[in-house]
Design a protein around this nucleic acid. Structure first.
Length: 280
DNA sequence: TTCCAGGACCGGG
DNA sequence: CCCGGTCATGGA
């Protein structure tokens, strides 16, 4: 059970039925991705070279459909399933978490959070920008970065600029982003990714500690940013970013550490606990 | 005005 | 190794 969704194509749109554990309001706006916007009930963003235009519909029986506007079967299968992790059985993972007092509360309130499979470079760059910063400003900086150096799509939206594009710039060139001291970090990351000093594809397959060590070669990437990049962009579901909130959660609620049931998927537990604790 | 935001760097002890 | 100050920016 859990991931046995079905979908049908109607004209240019594609509707997915019987989706378990995905609420767009949570998954797309829980501090893991900074480009999604909700317009008239539609969640919209450029992701890679794709423009996502998603709408969630709650049926009378409580089940949830999601319509992907202007989306082909091929695009859905080759891209969106992986991006949204639709083939991962979250119900099975969460059913195990429910034995824990606080995780079960977080799940009751925020069922539908998912870890996205974002582009490695975009996730890395975004979380470099996130350091000592707040979410509205992070979104603004990333938006200006895309407008300045991304590719303009036919619909007028901009893609996230490649590491190769950013690598050719100097920190001063990024002044209009108003990212402050992070400019030099963005450039250093882009250059090391572009020239292979930091090989993101290789890092995907490394054990967590070795993967983190590779990312720490970048100036401006510490443990927190590295774990975020690993969790949100490099497919490492056991990555565990510790920010001020998670630090509080661990001290207040889990002085002896997270329960065993989170082993292997600690990043998912982290996301539920983070969102729950921050919102209360 | 001061404080704070999903941190990291740097210097000194 | 660990500690505090510092770093840009802008909203509260």
């Amino acid at each position: 059970m859990g991931q046995n969704f079905t979908y049908k194509v109607d004209n240019c749109n594609l509707t997915v039925e019987n989706i378990h554990c995905l609420r767009l309001d949570y998954a797309l706006d829980c501090g893991q991705s900074f480009r999604w916007e909700k317009n008239n009930g539609h969640w919209q963003a450029v992701v890679g070279s794709h423009f996502g235009d998603l709408e969630e519909i709650i049926n009378k029986d409580g089940t949830i459909n999601i319509t992907f506007y202007n989306c082909t079967k091929e695009e859905f299968e080759s891209f969106w399933i992986h991006y949204l992790n639709l083939d991962k059985d979250y119900d099975e993972i969460l059913s195990c978490y429910k034995k824990d007092k606080y995780l079960s509360k977080a799940i009751d309130e925020f069922y539908g959070i998912r870890i996205l499979n974002q582009d490695p470079w975009e996730a890395l760059c975004s979380f470099i920008i996130s350091q000592n910063n707040n979410i509205p400003r992070i979104k603004g900086i990333i938006s200006r970065l895309c407008e300045a150096y991304g590719e303009k799509l036919p619909n007028g939206q901009y893609s996230f600029p490649s590491a190769e594009t950013i690598a050719k710039l100097e920190p001063e060139d990024l002044a209009p982003l108003r990212a402050g001291f992070r400019n030099k970090y963005i450039i250093d990351a882009a250059r090391k990714v572009a020239d292979g000093t930091v090989d993101l594809d290789k890092i995907k397959k490394l054990p967590l500690d070795e993967a983190e060590a590779e990312l720490l070669k970048i100036k401006g990437v510490g443990p927190k940013v590295a774990q975020c990049a690993l969790l949100y962009g490099l497919g490492q579901v056991d990555a565990f970013p510790i920010d001020v909130w998670v630090k509080k959660i661990m001290a207040d609620l889990y002085p002896k550490g997270l329960p065993n049931c989170t082993k292997g998927t600690r990043g998912i537990a982290q996301q539920y606990l983070f969102h729950w604790y921050r919102n209360k």
